[in-house]
Nucleic acid binder design. Structure first.
Lengths: 164, 164
DNA sequence: CACCAAGTTCAAAATTTTAAGAACTAATTT
DNA sequence: AAATTAGTTCTTAAAATTTTGAACTTGGTG
């Protein structure tokens, strides 16, 4: 096992700042702080494939924090890993190519709220027709959007192909 | 002061369940639990205009919790209130008619993430062209979406007018 | 003026979330 | 077989968030 040594990853101040900025932003989206920083690190790091230990060291967190963060992100399908024969370590990387699915998933979550709003409309008193109509307008619009978004994706795919 | 008495608002089990369901969903969106339930209550309540005290009683929370929740939602522009002369109480209601702005705001937040991703691209090493291209593809698509969404809104407005 | 109603504020309590550390497991190497 | 590596799990500690209760305004009422 001659080349088991990996040059420790070094982060510039610019990179560190951006990791924190990404971290805060993704925390705002509901992610756990450590998980948010792991994403930041993988976005910013020169090497987009990092081991468990490299992540632990780069972010200066405990092994258990790394373990929890990684497993959460794996389960959320934000991360995947590859392995190399003769090396027990997993190399984690962002599932960026996955963005179409992520996008679809985000739409589904938002559409879920709309389903709830339809439940609201179903049980609301009929004594408040204007109010109900306001809610219905919003729900109808959102459904229109959710219906149109996949078409936009298709359109964009097409435009992109035309350019190449 | 003859008719200062208001019939205490009564909620059916169906309504209570839906308030909780909405509560949990909006918590998932990052809202505080109490604020999320206040929204739920106002969505579901037969009377869409409730006083401070009615909210406190209906949700069985403390006055300070109500105060915090209401002020948060007012500041977030999710709530507004009206008053009636000779009645010191404020009557709170959802700003549902506001949904176009809310929608625009949500887009801006998502677009903010995209700005960050462009920062990532700006400082990433050029040694990983495929990875960078993947990120760029995602960012470009999201920007396309954010650009198209206002058009969809216009289109929907038009379609709606044609129907009437 | 004394009192009540409609809130607000603040300190403390309760709850939840997050992270750490230490002990553990399961491969691999020596 | 002992030691090392790559992690996991579990208990606890620390931190942050949320909620309460009690005291405090502020404006109107009798």
């Amino acid at each position: 096992m001659v080349f088991n040594c990996k040059p420790k990853i070094v982060l510039t101040d610019k990179q560190k700042n951006l990791i924190e900025k990404i971290g805060i932003t993704f925390e705002g989206e509901g992610l756990q702080p450590v998980a948010a920083r792991i994403l930041g690190l993988l976005y910013v790091s020169d090497n987009p494939q990092l081991t468990f230990d490299e992540i632990t060291v780069a972010l200066q967190i405990s092994k258990s924090a790394t373990s929890n963060g990684i497993n959460l992100l794996l389960q959320m399908q934000r991360l995947e890993y590859i392995t190399f024969s003769g090396d027990r370590r997993r190399y984690f990387r962002l599932k960026v190519s996955n963005w179409r699915e992520q996008f679809r998933h985000k739409i589904e979550v938002m559409a879920g709220i709309n389903v709830l709003m339809r439940e609201v409309l179903a049980i609301r008193t009929k004594e408040t027709p204007e109010y109900n109509a306001s809610i219905k307008e919003m729900v109808d619009f959102m459904d229109y959007i959710f219906q149109q978004l996949p078409l936009l994706l298709q359109q964009w795919n097409k435009e992109k192909n035309n350019k190449n």
